[in-house]
Design a protein around this nucleic acid. Structure first.
Lengths: 336, 336
DNA sequence: CGCAGTAACGTAAGTGCTTACGTAAATGCC
DNA sequence: GGCATTTACGTAAGCACTTACGTTACTGCG
């Protein structure tokens, strides 16, 4: 499922969905057992059952909802004869909600259903190793104490000054090279035979012929890559540039590009070119600001079907104080 | 917190609350980082980012929401320039939603915020032993497969034929005797000195003087209790009858009453009386159907302040084929 | 080919909450 | 004792969904 792949980022969505499924399951159980009540009423009714008559704000505070929520539900329950309301003697603002005798009797009959739900939910909650209830309690504590919010801020502050490290090829990272490239290839194009070959065995297709592969890491985690392919003596191709989609905005692309160009320089290359597609706007912008200029025609023997943009590195064109306000128009014209 | 004490029964409420807190935390993080987007948009926007253009129903299925939800959100996002919609060439019913170049750029800048949220949430999720994400995944699987619903049904079927066992006093259950009685005393009255004494040391105040205490158990779990106090030779008082509020409807009260009367019989008692309160409607109904009849005046030396109902056991009055349709009016008249 | 069945998806209305706001009563403070 | 502040809580409006329903387009089958 897509949301599962998003990990913690989609936690809110998933929790809400599970919450609604639970209400639905409870309602189904009530209906099957012949009880006519809604699972959403549980906190209020149960509070009144175990604690006795209580005011709107008292209940709201106890069950962690706003007072209008309780107020509105109370109006509904009153209309249906579950509760009564009388004004507090010592404080005329306050109302005292109380279960009717009939409601009390109905609730007293719910034991078996509640017990069944509790046991089934407990079993489901503790399946798969951990215990949902315990984990949830810890999570709630972090939210209530503000620790989660503080942690997000702290992490973000740390990450703003985070150092993306550029590291040379390592055999054990070959799967990352494949994974990162497959991601954007599938997203924008299809994987061509040449891709499959290069990604499947980067050692044989990139390193051994005299090329290089760079990896961008954030705190040890590989989040981007690019390859410098050796075409001919002194002629290199920049290719397979990929940054994981959840890790854009760290500047990994720029660092990879700089790293590749530096590598090209170290090898005393004469020509550095690349093939790309006008569909990859942000990447083209990056190449332009890195010193690549557009070339009208494909190189003889162009590799890829998808390629419709050809660029060549011209060092003096590099816009080093990074051109933040680079005119978008330029890109558009190029893209045509 | 009240909801925590309800265990699995309040899980739905709590999950929803956590879900909303998470959305709020994410939104705060977005705002602080200067991004103008809503956490609720994440599933749709992220899907379009990693998977590329997609139709409404495709997205809805992937993120586990209904198609109107996606449709409505899409309309809003379209109005704000995040996505465009064009009609599918091969199927005129279907629309193709696609991120605008601007949106693509905005999303590409979110890496650090996402990473911060992910890390903080991961830390909170795995604090406290278990891991919320794993536990949630297992729980979701049980819901999706229908196992939870089936389990509830199965548990409920089992519990309908469940046997409440009545067991005699055991020293290690003394705390249950106290807990169960404190629950209803606090709910309906206040704890009087005599209560404190009896509940604090049932051995000394009930058993040793020649009385008895019974416990009702469900699958080994103590869920109810009652006491038979010896007042004088042949004279007993039924007292401290309590069934846990979440376990009403199992018939534990009746079994406890029957058990106490049987114990009274085994001891060849002559008189069995009880003191109660007209506020405890269902309990009085139980006593009546068990063979107790109302007595107009308090016994000389009545024990409790709260007592305003006095009953005496008259075996021939026991409505043994349990009087389901016992006239409520009777209770009312008695209660007056 | 014609036509029933189904899929895509927009619109409307409902729901369970929320925030925003107003009013009346109680409280604190000089 | 008067008056600002706070508290209780109802009402209104909004929001993120849902279910219900209708329209239009595609699909499969005789």
């Amino acid at each position: 499922m897509f949301l599962h792949a998003q990990g913690e980022l989609a936690l809110g969505s998933r929790l809400k969905a599970v919450s609604e499924s639970l209400y639905a399951a409870a309602n189904a159980a009530y209906r099957e057992a012949g009880h006519d009540l809604d699972a959403h009423w549980f906190p209020v009714l149960r509070y009144l059952q175990v604690r006795g008559p209580a005011s709107v704000t008292e209940i709201a505070a106890a069950i962690g909802q706003t007072h209008p929520a309780v107020s509105q539900l109370a109006a509904k329950l009153r209309a249906q004869g579950w509760i009564t309301r009388r004004t507090d003697r010592s404080d005329a603002r306050r109302g005292v909600l109380e279960l009717t005798a009939d409601a009390e009797r109905k609730l007293d009959r719910l034991g078996p259903v509640w017990c069944a739900i509790r046991r089934a939910a407990a079993a489901a909650s503790s399946r798969g190793g951990g215990n949902l209830l315990d984990a949830l309690a810890a999570f709630e504590a972090d939210i209530a104490s503000g620790r989660l919010a503080a942690d997000i801020r702290a992490q973000h502050a740390r990450l703003k000054g985070a150092t993306i490290e550029i590291a040379p090829y390592r055999r054990e990272w070959a799967p990352h090279f494949e994974r990162l490239n497959v991601e954007w290839l599938q997203r924008w194009f299809t994987i061509e035979d040449l891709d499959r070959a290069v990604l499947g065995d980067p050692q044989a297709h990139v390193i051994d012929p005299g090329g290089a592969i760079l990896f961008a890491t954030l705190d040890g985690e590989v989040i981007g890559t690019c390859a410098l392919l050796k075409e001919a003596p002194g002629v290199y191709e920049l290719s397979k540039m990929a940054v994981e989609s959840g890790f854009r905005g760290f500047g990994a692309g720029r660092k990879l590009l700089d790293g590749a160009i530096a590598e090209f320089g170290r090898r005393r290359g004469r020509t550095l070119f690349l093939e790309s597609s006008k569909r990859l706007g942000p990447a083209l912008q990056l190449y332009e600001s890195g010193g690549f200029v557009h070339h009208p025609a494909p190189r003889p023997g162009s590799h890829y079907q998808r390629a419709d943009v050809y660029m060549v590195y011209e060092p003096e064109k590099a816009a080093r104080p990074r051109a933040k306000a680079a005119p978008r128009k330029h890109l558009r014209v190029v893209g045509r």
